[in-house]
Write a protein that binds this DNA or RNA. Structure first.
Lengths: 341, 341
DNA sequence: ATATAAAATGTAAGCGCTTACATTTATCGG
DNA sequence: CCGATAAATGTAAGCGCTTACATTTTATAT
């Protein structure tokens, strides 16, 4: 069996009796070619089943139409939803997604960034703001367009599509306070090198402080994102003499674990204990009782991020800072503490 | 401001006073170079911050070290988990993942396949067996290594890493039958162009048939994967005079929706109605009552798929058919029907 | 020390495409 | 019908890398 010959631009050009330049133009800027030749060439392209060689195209055009995204983990509904939207929007524009996950490890993230850049990514989607100056200047030096998602910052020097984690968390906490809660506990994702998690915790602290509640005494556990960890952490938080009346969780998955443990311990939600989540993933509405949580527009974020990124590729100096709104989703897991009943 | 000059192989070669070939060898096959020059060259590489140009490399080497994966949706924990493992395994081997999702549309999937191939993917991860002969021969013609995941087939002509959807479903159904269930209903993902969904339904039918239960009368609803659809479908299934005693769902997400509706309708699970899932995603253990479902080794599948794919790239004739085991996870959502209590 | 094999390095020809520039062909007012 | 201008097409020089092959250096055996 002889090797299948993959047709090249040259083959098409010969077959259509035109120059390679014309074929290239038919494909990349059709209006520069007369209708007659264009039709002729495109027919040959189809007959031969020609597809451009990616490497050659990238080398010659200095552009790959691929975009990189580095997410902390794919194993998380929020990033999955955002990425799906991001990819779809790219797809509408003839671009493709290169995906990597950093496992919440900033060292790994830097490597991934470099790797994606050297793979010719035209632009990058990054999660959160927190990374070394070094890697930011690497991106600047190479003039790689990138957009930060899931975090919002006023920073005209770089683009972002995110929301105010601190404020959202602040407002959820205010809500709890207004219901009469005074004894808080927190289960958070690790705040080290995760500005979203950090801001969510800070939002709680600020709300407490603003309302004269001492936040130094607030028990707080940091653990990685999983139902199991929420489960264990909740137990730990409850093993104190003076139990909190509310456990605020950094995200819905941790909250789901907490709810599960509450059931196991025979605690009624929300009478014995209130639990809040963050993100409003589908899960939040299924568990019993439905979680009170913060809705985040993950899909919209992914879509807008793609749009901003594409604009930045066209115009390297383009920047945009988009803040999306969030809102509290009322479930049944947050209510007045028992002492107020 | 002058454009940042990205260093090339040539720059490195000049700086290190060797030929470009030597530099290339230092990077790609270090043992062909003496320790002395290698150290010298690698130092320059580091000092200059050189990274190979992807396009050039791809063009010259006819290999990109990128692999494509096309999943029906990212918005599904099972694929997310599998992909994450797939990507990590690739990463350990210096390869990167190109990701696309087809939205369960086989037309779209074909386009994605062609797109990823023309983008120079060295190999592909595909979900399920069901696609046109045309696209299979496209892959064969171009000798693109690929591996099919989530489905198992005895087919020496192509590789797969999957499990027996039919058998797993069959056994779960047997379990229900042995508990005394005779009136079944099904909520399935669309079986058109989805062999996994199809086999899961067929497994149920076969088990019923083998046990003398007429499966023609079994109510069955097909709907896309979402909690909301499970919710609605369950309601529909219950709006009949002769209600089923068990609703078997094609996956955990649909089951979660069904459970939610059961609660809403005031039906006790499992006393009034049994509900089963499939996949054993984290969700399954959190909802109340915990789902009886089928555990699938998604992560293992992703990892193995990467390994098989990498082997196939080295040896184009290599094939492997791996069948992973599955097992029933006992939740509280499946029990004897009321009439048997 | 010398012949010979092996290891290290260099030379240079592409890989398949895009695009600046040159050339040819069509269009059009007078 | 002519010359001027615009539109269409062609020519050919890279883009930055890998690798077959040629050459030089080093190691080994005699």
């Amino acid at each position: 069996m002889n090797k299948p010959e993959i047709p090249t631009l040259d083959d098409v050009a010969k077959e259509a009796r035109v120059s390679t330049a014309t074929v290239s133009r038919c494909l990349n800027s059709p209006d520069q070619v007369s209708t007659k030749t264009r039709d002729k060439v495109l027919k040959v392209v189809k007959d031969l089943g020609y597809t451009p060689n990616f490497g050659a195209q990238a080398l010659a055009a200095k552009r790959t139409n691929t975009f990189g995204a580095i997410v902390p983990t794919m194993n998380n509904a929020i990033f999955a939803a955002g990425l799906q939207a991001f990819q779809e929007e790219l797809g509408h524009n003839g671009a493709t997604l290169l995906l990597a996950s950093s496992s919440y490890n900033s060292q790994a993230e830097e490597e991934q960034i470099r790797s994606l850049v050297s793979r010719g990514a035209d632009g990058l989607l990054l999660i959160g703001t927190q990374r070394s100056d070094q890697i930011y200047s690497f991106l600047d030096d190479r003039q790689i367009p990138f957009v930060i998602a899931w975090s919002y910052e006023e920073n005209k020097r770089r683009s972002c599509v995110g929301f105010d984690n601190l404020k959202a968390s602040y407002e959820l906490t205010l809500r709890a306070i207004s219901l009469g809660h005074k004894k808080f506990a927190i289960i958070s994702a690790p705040t080290h090198s995760n500005d979203r998690a950090k801001n969510r915790v800070m939002g709680i602290h600020k709300a407490l402080k603003d309302n004269g509640i001492n936040f130094q005494n607030v028990q707080s556990i940091e653990c990685e994102y999983s139902i199991g960890n929420g489960f264990e952490s909740f137990k730990t938080l409850m093993q104190v003499a003076d139990r909190p009346t509310i456990v605020m969780c950094g995200n819905d998955v941790l909250a789901a674990g907490a709810v599960k443990m509450a059931h196991e311990m025979g605690l009624k939600i929300p009478d014995d204990i209130s639990i809040t989540g963050f993100d409003d993933i589908e899960l939040a509405s299924v568990i019993e009782p439905a979680l009170t949580t913060v809705h985040v527009r993950h899909k919209k974020m992914g879509m807008l991020a793609a749009q901003v990124l594409l604009k930045q590729v066209d115009d390297k100096s383009y920047r945009e800072n988009i803040k999306l709104d969030t809102w509290i989703v009322e479930g049944k897991s947050l209510a007045k503490p028992r002492s107020f009943l």
